[in-house]
Measured scan of single mutants.
Amino acid sequence: TQVHVDGVTYTFSNPEEAKKFADEMAKRKGGTWEIKDGHIHVE
């Protein structure tokens, strides 16, 4: 599962880990995350 944050791609083999990471990054940025085309995007 790929997580895209500010133009950087992080790859996780476990989708649950990817979601936890996205959640943390979104909180830090004061933003949100969503799943697009099977990838997670942090806004």
Rank of each mutant, 00 (worst) to 15 (best):
T1C: 11
T1A: 06
T1Y: 11
T1F: 11
T1Q: 06
T1G: 03
T1M: 14
T1N: 06
T1R: 04
Q2Y: 14
Q2W: 12
Q2V: 13
Q2M: 14
Q2G: 05
Q2I: 13
Q2C: 07
Q2D: 10
Q2K: 13
Q2A: 09
V3D: 00
V3H: 00
V3Q: 00
V3K: 00
V3N: 00
V3P: 00
V3R: 00
V3A: 01
V3Y: 01
V3G: 00
H4N: 06
H4C: 06
H4F: 11
H4L: 07
H4P: 00
V5S: 07
V5T: 05
V5H: 05
V5Y: 07
V5F: 08
V5C: 09
V5M: 12
V5I: 10
V5E: 02
V5D: 04
V5R: 01
V5A: 07
V5N: 04
V5W: 03
D6L: 04
D6Y: 07
D6G: 08
D6H: 06
D6P: 01
D6F: 06
D6E: 09
D6V: 04
D6W: 04
D6T: 05
G7F: 06
G7T: 05
G7I: 02
G7W: 05
G7R: 06
G7C: 08
G7L: 05
G7P: 01
V8E: 13
V8D: 11
V8I: 12
V8K: 12
V8S: 09
V8M: 13
V8H: 12
V8C: 11
T9M: 11
T9F: 10
T9A: 10
T9L: 09
T9N: 05
T9V: 14
T9E: 07
Y10D: 00
Y10V: 05
Y10K: 03
Y10S: 03
Y10C: 05
Y10F: 11
Y10E: 01
Y10W: 10
Y10A: 02
Y10Q: 02
Y10H: 08
T11P: 06
T11Y: 14
T11D: 08
T11L: 13
T11H: 13
T11S: 11
T11E: 11
T11M: 12
T11I: 13
F12K: 00
F12I: 02
F12Y: 04
F12W: 03
F12P: 00
F12N: 00
F12R: 00
F12G: 00
F12L: 03
F12C: 06
F12Q: 00
S13M: 12
S13W: 12
S13V: 12
S13R: 09
S13I: 11
S13L: 12
N14S: 11
N14V: 08
N14R: 07
N14G: 08
N14D: 14
N14F: 07
N14Y: 07
N14W: 07
N14L: 09
N14P: 00
P15H: 13
P15Q: 13
P15F: 15
P15R: 10
P15T: 12
P15M: 15
P15N: 09
P15D: 12
P15G: 10
P15K: 10
E16M: 09
E16D: 12
E16V: 09
E16I: 09
E16G: 08
E16Q: 09
E16W: 10
E16N: 10
E16S: 10
E16C: 08
E16H: 10
E16T: 10
E17L: 10
E17D: 13
E17C: 08
E17M: 10
E17F: 07
E17H: 10
E17A: 11
E17S: 10
E17T: 10
A18W: 01
A18G: 05
A18V: 01
A18H: 00
A18F: 01
A18D: 00
A18Y: 01
A18K: 00
K19D: 03
K19T: 12
K19P: 00
K19G: 07
K19L: 14
K19V: 15
K19R: 12
K19M: 15
K19E: 13
K20T: 12
K20A: 14
K20H: 11
K20M: 12
K20N: 11
K20L: 13
K20E: 13
K20P: 01
K20V: 12
K20Y: 10
K20Q: 13
F21K: 01
F21T: 00
F21H: 02
F21V: 02
F21C: 06
F21I: 01
F21D: 00
F21R: 01
F21Q: 01
F21A: 03
A22Q: 01
A22W: 01
A22T: 01
A22M: 02
A22L: 01
A22P: 00
A22I: 01
A22C: 03
A22E: 02
A22S: 03
D23K: 08
D23M: 10
D23R: 08
D23G: 07
D23I: 13
D23H: 07
D23N: 09
E24P: 00
E24R: 07
E24N: 05
E24H: 07
E24I: 08
E24S: 05
E24W: 12
E24V: 08
E24G: 05
E24T: 06
E24A: 08
E24F: 09
M25Y: 09
M25P: 00
M25D: 04
M25I: 14
M25E: 15
M25A: 11
M25T: 12
M25K: 05
M25C: 06
M25L: 08
M25S: 08
A26I: 14
A26N: 03
A26H: 02
A26M: 04
A26L: 06
K27C: 12
K27P: 03
K27T: 12
K27I: 13
K27W: 13
K27V: 12
K27M: 13
K27H: 14
K27L: 14
K27Y: 13
K27E: 14
R28H: 14
R28W: 14
R28G: 13
R28P: 07
R28V: 15
K29T: 15
K29H: 15
K29Y: 15
K29F: 15
K29E: 13
K29M: 15
K29P: 10
K29S: 14
K29G: 14
G30S: 04
G30A: 04
G30R: 05
G30P: 03
G30M: 04
G30F: 04
G30N: 10
G30Y: 04
G30D: 09
G30Q: 07
G30I: 01
G30T: 02
G31H: 03
G31E: 04
G31K: 03
G31S: 05
G31W: 05
G31N: 03
G31R: 03
G31C: 08
G31D: 05
G31M: 06
G31P: 02
G31T: 09
T32Q: 08
T32D: 05
T32E: 06
T32M: 08
T32R: 12
T32W: 14
T32I: 09
T32G: 07
T32P: 02
T32A: 08
T32K: 12
T32F: 13
T32S: 12
T32C: 14
W33P: 03
W33S: 04
W33Q: 04
W33M: 05
W33V: 13
W33N: 02
W33K: 02
W33H: 03
E34R: 09
E34G: 07
E34K: 11
E34Q: 13
E34W: 14
E34M: 12
I35E: 12
I35G: 04
I35V: 11
I35D: 05
I35C: 11
I35Y: 14
I35K: 04
I35P: 03
I35A: 05
I35R: 03
I35Q: 07
K36A: 06
K36R: 14
K36G: 03
K36E: 05
K36Q: 08
K36H: 10
K36P: 03
K36L: 09
K36M: 08
K36V: 12
D37A: 06
D37E: 09
D37G: 09
D37S: 04
D37M: 05
D37Q: 05
D37C: 08
D37T: 03
D37P: 02
G38E: 04
G38N: 07
G38D: 05
G38I: 02
G38C: 07
G38V: 03
G38P: 02
G38H: 05
G38T: 04
G38S: 05
H39R: 04
H39D: 09
H39I: 15
H39C: 09
H39Q: 12
H39P: 02
H39W: 05
H39T: 10
H39V: 15
H39A: 12
H39M: 13
I40E: 02
I40V: 04
I40W: 04
I40T: 01
I40Q: 01
I40D: 02
I40S: 02
H41N: 07
H41K: 06
H41E: 06
H41C: 10
H41V: 12
H41D: 04
H41Q: 07
H41P: 02
V42S: 02
V42A: 02
V42E: 02
V42M: 06
V42R: 01
V42N: 02
V42H: 03
V42I: 12
V42D: 02
E43D: 11
E43F: 15
E43I: 15
E43H: 15
E43N: 14
E43W: 15
E43Y: 15
E43M: 15
E43P: 05
E43G: 13
E43R: 14
